[in-house]
């Protein structure tokens, strides 16, 4: 397809739409005063990120992103908001004391990182440069997790155990008088 003299592929159109929604909803998360709506937009932003993964030929990552981030984490956040009804009632003033300064600092940081990314040479690894292996990435991930990367995999499970215990201790309502 040709628009204004530029040749544009469907891939690029999809990328621009997904990236646009991701950024716009991420901005809404920061700017909206109502925390429930902010959480909803967070879900949308994460969902579009999953779309970006799918575009980058990583369907497994996309599926994981939808299941864990959109499915589990966003639901948990919304559930937590519903359960703590005090948060529901008060308007959540977002604490940006100096929006101009904040925007300026964030903009400078963006410019800096953007120029860095554009100006560097990215070495393509053999895996990334090879032919797309559709349908093979799940076995590959599974094998990587249980063979070379078994240490991080096992360590992550210990971390999850410790953090779950900690979360219960912090969140539990203690009976008065026995602390």
């Amino acid at each position: 397809m040709q628009i204004l003299g530029f040749y544009i592929t469907g891939y690029q159109v999809a990328f621009v739409i997904l990236a646009g929604i991701t950024l716009a909803s991420a901005a809404m998360v920061v700017l909206l005063p109502n925390i429930l709506r902010a959480a909803m937009f967070l879900g949308l932003s994460l969902f579009c990120t999953a779309g970006l993964y799918a575009l980058m030929n990583a369907p497994f990552m996309a599926a994981v992103q939808v299941m864990i981030y959109v499915g589990a984490i966003t639901t948990m956040i919304i559930l937590a908001i519903f359960l703590s009804n005090r948060v529901m009632r008060i308007g959540f003033a977002q604490a940006i004391y100096n929006p101009l300064l904040a925007a300026g600092a964030a903009g400078l940081m963006f410019l800096f990182l953007f120029l860095t990314v554009v100006n560097s040479v990215w070495v393509k690894s053999a895996v990334a440069a090879g032919p797309a292996r559709v349908g093979q990435d799940v076995p590959a991930v599974a094998q990587a997790l249980l063979q070379p990367y078994v240490f991080p995999f096992e360590l992550a499970s210990v971390i999850l155990l410790a953090v779950l215990v900690g979360a219960v201790v912090i969140a539990k309502e203690d009976v008065d008088g026995d602390s």
Binding site: Y149, L155, I159, V163, G166
Partner: peptide, 16 residues
């Protein structure tokens, strides 16, 4: 990966 996980493990337990 090991560095990140270990540092994060230490941090998470320390927060609690």
């Amino acid at each position: 990966i090991a560095i990140y996980l270990c540092i994060e493990f230490l941090s998470l337990t320390s927060y609690i």
